[in-house]
């Protein structure tokens, strides 16, 4: 199962941005198999099974951050972790974080749903039919290099400030990741799997449903993870300018008020939501396509 060059390049980017999680998952497995249920040195079994590597890397990040903040001594440019933490608790207590996070996550979910509905069927059509592919592919290749963010100014004229603009930008970003991976998934179905179905007297529509679709699923799931990562990165930019609420809006709002700790607090929220969602998507991927690895290759 080979992804298109662009898709695999994008995947590498994705893996780079979520590297901490990937490394942690692996060391976690090792810790589990190494120590197992036994509790050496009187450490309770459940505690031995928890992997603390990510916590350690987070601790180092905090230390470096604290050091640089003290050194620059400019609370507006770089507030200390402690002040950001305090701002975070403040915002959480007032319900602002939940409010804006809920708005952004709702937009994300709606955007990904729209992108799936548009991109996956089109990907199947293009993957299966050369004529449709030849017709649509030039448009795709023309639009694909344009960053979603480049459309924000124009989208402001068209949609104004509101929900539609960030959703439009995210659908745009998610669409290409899903489309290209769906096409490559459909095209890279092992011809022997189709031949085998034909020799068993399976009709074409059934081959599509029971062979091509499940065979393309790993690539589609990888595409979905890329779509999520791209859309979540784009939402901040879109909301920064084009929305009356949401995490990106909150960042811009507190920037104008020169309240850096709160700006940082919202950046933290974006990071944590992205991180947790990616962990969730990896788990979903393992459930949906247990026969392939995380990059979508058959094992």
């Amino acid at each position: 199962m080979s992804a298109t060059p662009s898709a695999s390049a994008a995947l590498k980017m994705d893996q780079a941005t979520t590297d901490v999680g990937g490394g942690a998952a692996q060391t976690g497995d090792r810790a589990r198999s190494g120590r197992g249920a036994a509790s050496p040195g009187g450490v309770p079994g459940w505690l031995a099974r928890i992997d603390f590597t990510p916590l350690r890397s987070f601790a180092i990040l905090l230390l470096v951050w604290q050091g640089v903040a003290v050194w620059t001594a400019s609370p507006i440019q770089l507030p200390t972790p402690l002040r950001v933490g305090a701002a975070f608790l403040d915002l959480a207590a007032e319900g602002e974080i939940t409010e804006h996070a809920l708005v952004s996550v709702t937009r994300l979910v709606v955007s990904l749903a729209i992108a799936v509905v548009l991109a996956v069927p089109l990907g199947f059509l293009m993957g299966l039919n050369r004529k449709i592919d030849a017709f649509v592919d030039p448009l795709i290749e023309l639009l694909r290099p344009i960053s979603g963010i480049a459309w924000i100014p124009l989208a402001l004229f068209i949609f104004g400030i509101g929900d539609v603009l960030p959703v439009f930008i995210m659908v745009y970003v998610a669409f290409f990741a899903l489309l290209l991976n769906t096409i490559s998934g459909v095209r890279s179905v092992d011809p022997k799997l189709i031949a085998a179905a034909r020799t068993m007297g399976v009709a074409r529509p059934m081959i599509l449903a029971k062979v091509v679709a499940p065979a393309a699923l790993p690539a589609i799931v990888v595409g979905f993870r890329l779509a999520f990562a791209g859309a979540w990165a784009a939402i901040v930019a879109a909301e920064l300018i084009g929305a009356p609420n949401g995490l990106g809006f909150a960042i811009e709002w507190y920037r104008e008020l020169l309240m850096s700790p709160k700006v940082f607090a919202f950046i933290l929220v974006i990071a944590v939501i992205g991180y947790v969602c990616d962990l969730g998507l990896r788990a979903l991927q393992r459930r949906l396509t247990p026969w392939v690895d995380e990059a979508g290759h058959s094992s």
Partner: peptide, 27 residues
């Protein structure tokens, strides 16, 4: 019936699902 060199089993189907593939979806 054909048995292919690398078996061409469906990785998303269980043993049962693979053996019953032609029965469930084919002629």
């Amino acid at each position: 019936g054909v048995m292919f060199q690398d078996y061409a089993l469906y990785p998303w189907q269980t043993v049962q699902g693979n053996i019953g593939f032609g029965l469930n979806y084919g002629a």
